[in-house]
Design a protein around this nucleic acid. Structure first.
Lengths: 139, 139
DNA sequence: TTCCTTATTGCAAGTAGTTGCAATAAGTAT
DNA sequence: ATACTTATTGCAACTACTTGCAATAAGGAA
């Protein structure tokens, strides 16, 4: 069994299909463990799936993020990165050295709740990225 | 006096220069009032500055955001938008209809403080965008 | 004013990401 | 097994954005 198998039933229940391309992209994300840009996903996955094209990668990543199977996060410079859904969390990125740390979702949970009450919006538990200077770069 | 004049001294103090291109781009942002994508800024500014090129627009917007003269925000679909710095605020965007509302900076201020204490990072008061469904689209 | 330094621009060529549409193939039903 | 529906893919052309480098011009000094 390859490592995207666990998703097959969940996809079918919602009328979606599992394909070799999706399986391979899930495999790449799983192996990477962390964040990967669309380009990185394309390059790594193509090794196992030589026929794979860029539009398919972009569409698959968007599909996975839209349906909750992966998280998308904006990190510096307008770039989007993806990772498999695990614990919800947020990121702090140092503008100078690029060092990234994760922050538990609970830190923002009360704000989310407050905002939902005051605005009526139902918010995604999305992957927020905050920028600043890490302790080492503040001098 | 054109409307970027107020920035001239602040730029000179830091070794930067004011140029007709920068002036025109500031004018465009000022007139728009709200968010504008790089492409929109390019198209609108070019009417007044026919020689203007795309790389200049992208670099100018990045420059303005980097130095605190403008704010950059990621809104849906990986797009970056810019606006002139005024009050710090955040955005809530409806994934379905695109309706956007602003949220005061103070809502997130306590979280920022808490994060700065627990992580040691010095955070930018950045422009965070949260996604969700607005009251009308929740049915 | 004129000269000088160098920040900023424009050009040109590059990379990244998107879109429409016809062809393919996943999964269901027969 | 076979046929059918339609989600998904690949292709090709397009738009968005970036980068290196030489030319230009802003702003300070002589």
């Amino acid at each position: 069994m390859t490592c995207g198998s666990y998703l097959i039933d969940r996809l079918h229940q919602r009328g979606f299909r599992m394909t070799p391309q999706r399986m391979a992209i899930l495999h790449t994300l799983r192996r990477a463990g962390g964040h990967l840009s669309a380009t990185e996903v394309f390059e790594r996955t193509r090794r196992a799936q030589p026929g794979l094209t860029e539009p398919t990668v972009y569409r698959t990543l968007e599909f996975l993020a839209e349906n909750g199977y992966a998280l998308a996060a904006h990190i510096g410079g307008g770039k989007l990165v993806y990772e498999l859904t695990e614990e919800n969390h947020h990121h702090l990125i140092c503008k100078k050295c690029g060092k990234t740390i994760s922050v538990e979702y609970t830190v923002l949970a009360s704000v989310y709740e407050q905002l939902q009450l005051s605005t009526g919006y139902k918010l995604d538990s999305s992957h927020v990225t905050l920028f600043g200077l890490c302790p080492d770069c503040q001098t």
